[in-house]
C-alpha cells in the first residue's frame, strides 16, 4: 500500500511539471508513519503530518523532513521529539505552520526556530516552554498566531511578549484548575410511583404524555433489568440495576416501565406520572 501511495505522489508531482522530491526521502517519511501532501499553491510544496499515524517519530526521524525542503506546514503533535530534534527544523525556511504541541520540547530548542522568516503559526501548547521561549519567539517577524496553553509561561512573560509584538495573537487558554464544577440543585420532592407486580396480564403499552423524570431504586435484593414498553408494545432495554442501585430516567408521563430479573422474567412494572417521581423496586417475596 505504501508503495502505491508513494507512486501516486510521484506521478502527481510530475503532472505539476516540477521535479519530484527525492523518493528515498519520501519513502523514509512514509515508513515512520508520516503523511506527505502537496500544499495548495504553485510548485512543489509540502505539508507533512505525523500527528495521526506517526506518533512514534523521534528526533532522528526529523532529518528526513529536513531533507525534503519546501515544507510549508509541519505537524509534530504527540510525537516523541525533544528539544534536540528542533535543530533539524532550522533549514526549513519556507515553514509557515508548525505544530509542536504535546511534545517533550522545552526552551532549549526554541532558538532553532527564530530564523524561520515565514513562520506564521506556532503551536506550543502542553510543552515545557517558559517565558524564555517567549522572549526569543518575539523575534519571529511574520508570526501571527502563537499557542501556549498549559505551558510554564507567566503573566509577566506574556505581557512582555504582547508589548514587543502587539499584533500577534497569543492564546493562553483557560486555567482548568479554576473551572468550577457546578453542583446539581437540590432534588425536588418526589412522588412515589405505584408498584404493580407481574401477573398473567401483559403490562399496558406506553402512551405519550408530558416530559418527566423517574428515579428507579432497586431494593429487590437482586440484579434487575429496566425495559420501556414501547408504544407498539415491544420492549426496549434502558438499564440494568445492580442491588441497591438507583437510575435516573427521563421519560414521558403514562409510560410503562417494566422490571425483569436478569433472565428477562417480568417482576412488575411502574407507570410514570407527570410529576418527578421515585420508583422503588420492592424486595422479592
Amino acid at each position: 500500500m505504501e508503495k502505491i501511495l508513494l507512486g501516486l505522489i510521484l506521478c502527481s508531482s510530475l503532472s505539476f511539471g516540477v521535479q519530484a522530491a527525492d523518493s528515498a526521502t519520501l519513502e523514509a517519511i512514509k515508513k515512520s508513519g508520516g503523511l506527505v501532501l502537496p500544499y495548495p499553491g504553485e510548485g512543489e510544496q509540502w505539508e507533512v503530518e505525523f500527528h495521526l499515524r506517526g506518533r512514534g517519530l523521534t528526533d532522528d526521524g526529523l532529518a528526513n523532513v529536513a531533507a525534503l525542503k519546501n515544507v510549508i506546514a509541519l505537524n509534530l503533535r504527540d510525537t516523541q521529539i525533544t528539544s534536540a530534534g528542533l535543530l533539524h527544523l532550522k533549514g526549513l525556511t519556507k515553514l509557515r505552520r508548525l505544530h509542536l504541541e504535546r511534545t517533550k520540547i522545552g526552551d532549549e530548542g526554541i532558538g532553532n526556530l527564530v530564523n524561520l522568516p515565514d513562520l506564521e503559526y506556532l503551536n506550543l501548547y502542553a510543552t515545557k516552554i517558559t517565558d524564555k521561549s517567549l522572549d526569543q519567539l518575539a523575534e519571529l517577524k511574520n508570526l501571527k498566531q502563537l499557542y501556549v496553553w498549559q505551558t510554564d509561561v507567566t503573566d509577566a512573560g506574556v505581557a512582555r511578549f504582547k508589548k514587543a509584538r502587539p499584533k500577534v495573537k497569543i492564546v493562553r487558554g483557560l486555567d482548568l484548575s479554576k473551572v468550577v464544577v457546578i453542583k446539581k440543585p437540590e432534588p425536588k420532592p418526589m412522588d412515589a410511583l405505584k408498584w404493580i407486580a407481574a401477573s398473567d396480564q401483559k403490562p399496558p403499552k406506553s402512551k405519550t404524555g408530558s416530559f418527566t423524570t423517574v428515579v428507579f431504586e432497586n431494593q429487590s435484593g437482586r440484579k434487575v433489568k429496566l425495559y420501556w414498553v414501547e408504544y407498539g408494545g415491544g420492549l426496549k432495554i434502558y438499564a440494568t440495576l445492580n442491588v441497591g442501585a438507583t437510575h435516573e430516567q427521563n421519560t414521558f408521563s403514562d409510560a410503562t416501565w417494566l422490571i425483569t430479573d436478569e433472565k428477562d422474567k417480568p417482576i412488575g412494572y411502574f407507570i410514570s406520572t407527570a410529576k418527578l417521581a421515585k420508583a422503588v423496586i420492592p424486595k422479592a417475596k
Partner: peptide, 10 residues
C-alpha cells in the same frame, strides 16, 4: 473555547 486554545479553530 476548546478548539481555540488547542490552536484548532482556524
Amino acid at each position: 473555547t476548546d478548539l481555540e486554545m488547542r490552536g484548532m479553530l482556524d
